[in-house]
Design a protein around this nucleic acid. Sequence first.
DNA 1: AACTTAGTTGAACAGATTGTTCAATAACGG
DNA 2: CCGTTATTGAACAATCTGTTCAACTAAGTT
Lengths: 209, 209
Amino acid sequence: MEVKQEPPKTVDRRVQRTQNLLLEALVALIQTTAYDEITVQDIIDRANVGRSTFYSHFLDKDQLLLSGLEKVRVSFEEQHRKLAIGNSLEDKREKVSLAFFTHVETYHQLYKAVLGKRSNPLVTQKLYLYLSGLFRQHLNDPQVEELKVEMPLELAVQFLTGSLLSVVTWWLENNLPYSAEQMNRWFHQLAVLPLISTANPKLWNSGRA
Amino acid sequence: MEVKQEPPKTVDRRVQRTQNLLLEALVALIQTTAYDEITVQDIIDRANVGRSTFYSHFLDKDQLLLSGLEKVRVSFEEQHRKLAIGNSLEDKREKVSLAFFTHVETYHQLYKAVLGKRSNPLVTQKLYLYLSGLFRQHLNDPQVEELKVEMPLELAVQFLTGSLLSVVTWWLENNLPYSAEQMNRWFHQLAVLPLISTANPKLWNSGRA
DNA sequence: AACTTAGTTGAACAGATTGTTCAATAACGG
DNA sequence: CCGTTATTGAACAATCTGTTCAACTAAGTT
């Protein structure tokens, strides 16, 4: 008996077209309207797509936006990997933020929907969790210099993620007044330097101190 | 002609009662239900208050929550002032965060509604703006040591606010496993130390570097 | 080119929620 | 006790969501 072939990689043109139109419409609307004020009706009007078509592709507005994030994730990971190989940076942790600043610069329209002041916290959180995962990984990496101060690892993770997203959001809302490299340099000075040390690592995992 | 007297301070008991019931209901609901899933109907059912009564007091759910924040703001500012007078802390900036950690510890149920993962970004932002105002004030204060690194003042403000709220959110969602003092010590090590310096201050305000 | 499969359409639908209105009722403060 | 003010509940329009289905149309296949 022949093994069933994998489903063909070629996706129906109509599907591509529809999904692109919907995502483009959402990104376009974001430039003029707050995310929480955009309705599914607005999106399908702009995209010239039927209501039932929308729901046959996405559960809701948020899933559409998340699919957009997913699409560009690949390019972020490429950039991230590239920086890791070059390894020209003093601290490996710095490359997470530089890759992110660069990526936001490229896809700033999309990120406005994710990080804007009236975005859906569930979508923002998805990004937050992704970034915190990267920081956690780096702080755990034995090759990487350890925390200078004694504290729960998770605290440093939340600290880095929160400050990075806050700074990036400010950067976005002021229409990227500085280069990604400059932003990263400043972020590095504020957030990463104090974490670096050659001291013996010791992370706290106990209960209330 | 006599100057018109100020309206009497005594508020009708019924108003007090209703507003307290509504706020208590919201805070109670938050402990079991995500903020964005709570409807006005849920609140008035829990509070045993008529629908029209709710809308005669508040524009919506968010205004109710904000009125709760407003109520406790006084106690925060007292705490903040007390720390400023004592002045036992090395860095004045530290007192903003310590007052905040302490306040969150006291009103953690309320803050869960404001900072929870599915809260309304507009409400969260209100708190964000308040805190960033305090940090901005401190970084501008000539009595306070200036930024060690050259960068836009606003960048440091966003950095501090974002990291503080992120850390506090994590603290809240893990049911306050450490004391407010301990949290503040760690936060100070991560965020405040790198900003302190006796060097000559110079803030950047130019365009793209 | 003809055929089969799969995506799209639009209208109609139920359901939830919001925010308003109003006349009757109840509680307050003086 | 009495005038004033708050509360009530029901009814209401309006908006938005998410689903359904039969007719239609474009895609990929042989």
